[in-house]
């Protein structure tokens, strides 16, 4: 079973580049509402955002929506006055659209973070620069090591009587000392790592970058489909008119606008479609076992 998460990382990267680009660069209310809906759906189904995350997004949405009418007073239709400043319908609607854009982008990014594990990030960097991928991989290992060691040094020093007074200054000074030991120890031992690298051929010539990921037929198919849908959605956005200030002019429901929105709807739910299809196929396969 090849779920969206198991596809080549380039596909996932390209996909999120497309949806994020369409979401961030457009201010089309139609596309943005579709984007918001599909991003929330994606985030829930991928398990990228849980209870508290949704609450945070809601608060962010509200704040982002409120800021614009409170600061920007352009627009013809005045709704009411607040502190002697006009609050206009246009500014309110713009604020809502911008808030939708920001919220949707954040939901997409959460999905991206969930799907793009460190392995996949490394794979993509390895394509550009094997050396950089190695540097990233080494840093990731050192992060884990530092975490383990921090704990160990903290314990050791405590048991040897480092934290005597139990006040804040003592705690801070102790932390700084522990950090200092941590750095010294890690740098010192790092030389062994460097020797191990040299012993195993580092710097003997050009590196290659290995990864278990390969391009399957489905990956090759995915990329043009994704690009095609994006292209249609872009044309749809260009052909529709969205003007907020000073007077709202919206023309969303022409042929291209509808086509573009439809393309975006498919694009936004593409990973879900793939996973549903794979799940169905899996059921069929299992029944044969």
């Amino acid at each position: 079973m090849r779920r969206f998460e198991d596809m080549n990382p380039l596909c996932a990267a390209f996909y999120y580049l497309c949806v994020l680009g369409l979401t961030m660069f457009g201010m089309n209310p139609l596309t943005l509402s579709l984007s918001l809906l599909s991003s929330i759906l994606s985030a829930v189904l991928f398990g990228a955002v849980k209870g508290r995350g949704h609450a945070f997004s809601l608060i962010l949405f509200l704040i982002a929506a409120l800021i614009n009418p409170l600061i920007v007073h352009n627009g013809m239709t005045v709704l009411f006055y607040f502190n002697d400043n006009p609050i206009t319908l246009e500014a309110v609607l713009y604020g809502l659209t911008a808030a939708g854009m920001i919220t949707a982008s954040l939901y997409w990014l959460r999905c991206l973070s969930k799907v793009m594990t460190s392995d996949k990030v490394l794979y993509i960097f390895g394509r550009f620069s094997p050396k950089l991928a190695l540097l990233l991989s080494m840093s990731l290992r050192f992060i884990e090591l530092l975490r383990v060691r921090w704990r160990k040094i903290q314990d050791t020093q405590k048991a040897l009587g480092l934290y005597r007074d139990g006040n804040l200054i003592d705690a801070l000074r102790g932390r700084a000392r522990v950090l200092s030991v941590l750095i010294g120890w890690t740098l010192e031992n790092g030389i062994v790592t460097a020797e191990s690298m040299e012993g195993r051929g580092y710097g003997s010539g050009r590196r290659t970058s290995y990864s278990a990921y390969r391009m399957h037929l489905s990956d090759w198919l995915f990329l043009p489909v994704c690009a095609g849908l994006t292209a249609v959605a872009v044309v749809g956005q260009v052909r529709s008119t969205v003007v907020f200030y000073p007077d709202m002019q919206m023309e969303l429901w022409n042929l291209w606008g509808i086509l573009g929105a439809a393309a975006f709807a498919v694009l936004g739910t593409l990973p879900l479609i793939i996973n549903a299809k794979e799940a169905l196929r899996w059921r069929g396969l299992l029944s044969k076992v």
Binding site: S118, D119, L122, P130, L134, S137, M138, L140, R141, E144, L145, N189, G190, V192, T193, S196, M197, R200, G201, Y202, G203, S204, G205, R206, R207, T208, S209, Y210, A212
Partner: peptide, 23 residues
């Protein structure tokens, strides 16, 4: 030292490292 000779973050990557270096 077992710890310090390891270069990369994942076991499979560590096994690949030597051959990657040799191109």
């Amino acid at each position: 030292n077992p710890e310090e000779q390891i270069v990369t973050d994942k076991v499979w990557h560590e096994l690949a490292f030597t051959l990657e270096s040799l191109g």
